[in-house]
Amino acid sequence: METQKVWFVTGASKGLGLVLVQKLLSNGIQVAATSRNVADLQAAAGDRTDLFLPLQVDLKSESSVQDAIEKTIGTFGKIDVVVNNAGYGLTGSVEELTDAEARENFDVNVFGTLNVIRKAMPHLRAQRSGHIFNISSIGGFTGDFPGFAIYCATKFAVNGLTESLAAEVKSFGIKVTVVEPGYFRTNFLTSGSLGIPQNEIADYKEVREMQKAHQFDINGNQPGDPGKAAEALIRISEETTPPLNLFLGQDAFDLAQAKIESISRDLDNWKSLTISTGF
């Protein structure tokens, strides 16, 4: 394992981010980790050592992100691996969710990620190396989840920006991977990480069923092991030709396969119409 790499992980006080930080530290890897509350981060990940730099960061603030990047480089000398992990889930139909609720989800899940990339890129570009992991979701590849339209939209955005980013920075020697996990047994489906609409509409029975399933049935019974997911990220960071898309979990694999097959059917069934629209 290349212990000389320096990692920068957002959303590290719980969930996959916390497990990843713990794995990195146990392997002697230097890591800067961010959270909205540095006390929560320190309590979860442990006291500061020469390997660990806990940072309180507001990802919606460019200046806050800039300060965190500068403190990381000032402490460790560089950044090699950026993991944009911070984000939260949001349930509710498109009709139910307010503009403010939808925009807040985009502000954290999309624009927070963009802020980190924007502030980290000058350093990665200057050193002509690095690896950016954007943590998306299987919901960023398939949107067949009633009640998760806005959340899926944020993750589809993460997928799209990651693909373009990979093309933009390839010539600088920077690798980019979008990670699309299925259900992993973290606290992602608890009240602190899953938003619900302020104004529910009873007519949306499928949405309510999906919402309740995530809150009470799936939560605590997710099939994915976050420790193994963290190990997968560490392994991919060591690959010379890492994947652009990294699906994690049997459920993610199956859902992705189903989406690919659905697209293939649509392409085949409507090929004549599709290609008939040229001059």
Rank of each mutant, 00 (worst) to 15 (best):
residue 21 V to Y: 03
residue 142 T to K: 09
residue 191 S to G: 08
residue 217 D to V: 14
residue 48 R to L: 08
residue 109 N to F: 02
residue 111 F to H: 05
residue 11 G to P: 04
residue 94 V to N: 09
residue 214 H to N: 10
residue 265 R to G: 13
residue 258 A to Q: 12
residue 174 I to G: 08
residue 185 R to E: 09
residue 25 L to D: 09
residue 228 K to Y: 02
residue 228 K to L: 15
residue 217 D to G: 12
residue 271 K to D: 12
residue 15 G to C: 07
residue 122 P to N: 02
residue 123 H to W: 05
residue 59 L to P: 05
residue 85 N to H: 00
residue 12 A to K: 05
residue 146 P to S: 05
residue 233 L to R: 05
residue 188 F to K: 08
residue 267 L to E: 13
residue 157 A to I: 00
residue 228 K to V: 07
residue 252 A to Q: 07
residue 43 A to T: 14
residue 272 S to T: 13
residue 270 W to L: 02
residue 87 G to K: 01
residue 232 A to C: 07
residue 253 F to K: 15
residue 150 I to P: 13
residue 266 D to S: 13
residue 231 E to A: 11
residue 30 Q to D: 06
residue 95 E to D: 13
residue 112 G to M: 03
residue 121 M to C: 06
residue 154 T to K: 06
residue 93 S to E: 04
residue 151 Y to L: 10
residue 89 G to P: 12
residue 64 S to R: 11
residue 92 G to M: 14
residue 259 K to H: 14
residue 34 T to Y: 00
residue 128 R to T: 08
residue 192 G to T: 00
residue 113 T to Y: 08
residue 263 I to A: 07
residue 92 G to K: 12
residue 55 L to V: 09
residue 277 T to S: 14
residue 144 D to Y: 03
residue 23 K to F: 02
residue 164 S to Q: 03
residue 132 I to N: 11
residue 74 G to M: 13
residue 55 L to N: 10
residue 212 K to M: 13
residue 51 L to Y: 10
residue 145 F to P: 11
residue 179 V to P: 06
residue 62 E to W: 06
residue 249 G to A: 13
residue 29 I to E: 03
residue 121 M to F: 06
residue 180 E to D: 15
residue 206 E to N: 09
residue 109 N to S: 10
residue 69 I to K: 14
residue 105 N to K: 00
residue 2 E to F: 10
residue 23 K to L: 09
residue 20 L to F: 03
residue 19 V to L: 06
residue 227 G to H: 01
residue 46 G to Q: 11
residue 55 L to A: 08
residue 127 Q to S: 06
residue 97 L to W: 02
residue 100 A to R: 11
residue 93 S to P: 10
residue 86 A to N: 06
residue 239 E to D: 14
residue 217 D to Y: 10
residue 268 D to S: 14
residue 145 F to I: 14
residue 223 P to D: 01
residue 7 W to H: 04
residue 123 H to P: 08
residue 212 K to Y: 03
residue 63 S to T: 09
residue 218 I to R: 06
residue 93 S to A: 12
residue 218 I to A: 00
residue 188 F to T: 01
residue 73 I to G: 08
residue 196 I to R: 11
residue 50 D to W: 09
residue 10 T to H: 01
residue 107 D to K: 02
residue 190 T to A: 00
residue 246 L to T: 06
residue 220 G to V: 09
residue 65 V to L: 10
residue 18 L to D: 15
residue 105 N to D: 05
residue 128 R to E: 11
residue 159 N to E: 15
residue 162 T to R: 09
residue 183 Y to C: 12
residue 204 Y to M: 11
residue 215 Q to F: 07
residue 93 S to I: 04
residue 52 F to D: 06
residue 233 L to H: 07
residue 74 G to Y: 07
residue 189 L to W: 00
residue 277 T to E: 12
residue 274 T to V: 05
residue 118 R to Y: 02
residue 247 F to E: 08
